[in-house]
Amino acid sequence: MFSEEKLNKVKEIIARYPAGKQKSALIPVLHLAQEEFGGWLSAETMDYVASLLQIKPIEVYEVATFYSMFNLKPVGKYVFEVCQTGPCMLRGSDNIIDYIKKKLDIGVGETTKDGLFTLKTVECLGACGYAPMMQLGKHFREHLTPEKVDAIIEECRVKAN
């Protein structure tokens, strides 16, 4: 369940659309829910969102499974989403992915045993000129090198403690 504050945020989002078009709030509210409820969307969370927006649960499932940013399974606390599309590949993204795999001892799509890190490969994130890059939470980490990756991992470990 959302806090009072988040519920107000939901109301504010719904108010952006004409009356009766509250379904438009679905994607923003799912973002909010994912942030709030552990970084992923459980069936219960989605049903809750459906009830908030007065739409059918299937309408939520249809949308949540379409967009790649919604996680339908639990993920690590820090998700490394490394871009692997052409422009990043040209600048060595494959090496970065390999390096992270070795360093964290996980494959793509896997989470470390301590639940701290998940490695994902993603398609172009719109930072092609600053390649190789990855998304970490809300922000982009650009011009990646093995040293930078080390520093990022360290930074996350410190934050987690």
Binding site: A43, K56, I58, E59, Y61, E62, T65, F66
Partner: peptide, 18 residues
């Protein structure tokens, strides 16, 4: 409606999710 199209692209499928 209780079923719909889930997923996208090649792995889109008809289903009820839960």
């Amino acid at each position: 409606r209780e079923h719909g199209v889930l997923g996208r692209g090649e792995v889109a499928e008809i289903g009820t999710y839960i």
